[in-house]
Amino acid sequence: MLKILVNGEPLDTSAKTLGDLCIALGYGDAKIATALNGVFVAAAVRSATALSDGDKVEVVAPRQGG
């Protein structure tokens, strides 16, 4: 199990890649974008992006803005 942070919350996960993580968390085909340790990770390469202990993952979606 990896100990990571997802949107600032601690999470223990068996997911080995960012793509697996998004599926495991249930994002499905939701309109989201991701970053790993502050660096943008495009949807096309999430499944090829390995996770490591201590990683910080951001998952964002459209929201109201000014």
Partner: peptide
Amino acid sequence: VTVSLRRESAREKSGQGFW
């Protein structure tokens, strides 16, 4: 119109309705 990105909860997925 201007829009933003905010953290999305996998449980609530509140951004999807806005989009």
